[in-house]
Amino acid sequence: MKEGPDLRFSTYLSQRPGLIEYAARMLGSREAAEDILQEAYLRFVPKASGSPLRHKSYLFRIVHNLAVDMLRRKKLERRSRMEDTPPWAAPPPMPTPEETVLFCESVRRAMDIIADLPKSQRVALEMHRFGGYPPEQIAAHLGVSVPTVYRLVQTAVATLTLRLRQDPADHRPS
Rank of each mutant, 00 (worst) to 15 (best):
K2P: 12
P5F: 03
R8H: 08
R8L: 06
R8V: 06
F9Y: 14
S10G: 13
S10V: 07
T11I: 10
Y12W: 15
L13T: 12
L13N: 15
S14I: 03
Q15N: 14
Q15A: 09
G18I: 14
G18H: 09
L19P: 01
A24K: 12
L27S: 02
S29N: 08
E31P: 04
E31V: 04
A32C: 05
E34W: 13
D35E: 15
D35P: 09
I36W: 08
L37A: 08
Q38M: 11
Y41D: 14
F44K: 06
V45M: 08
P46M: 05
P46H: 01
A48Q: 06
G50K: 11
P52H: 02
H55S: 06
H55W: 02
L59I: 05
L59F: 12
L59C: 02
V63E: 03
M70N: 04
M70K: 11
L71K: 00
R72M: 04
K74T: 09
E77C: 03
S80C: 10
R81H: 09
A89I: 01
A90R: 04
P92C: 04
P92G: 07
P93T: 08
P97D: 15
E98A: 05
V101F: 03
L102H: 13
F103E: 15
C104H: 09
V107Q: 15
R109L: 02
D112C: 02
A115I: 00
A115F: 02
L117D: 07
L117N: 10
S120C: 09
S120G: 01
R122Y: 08
A124F: 01
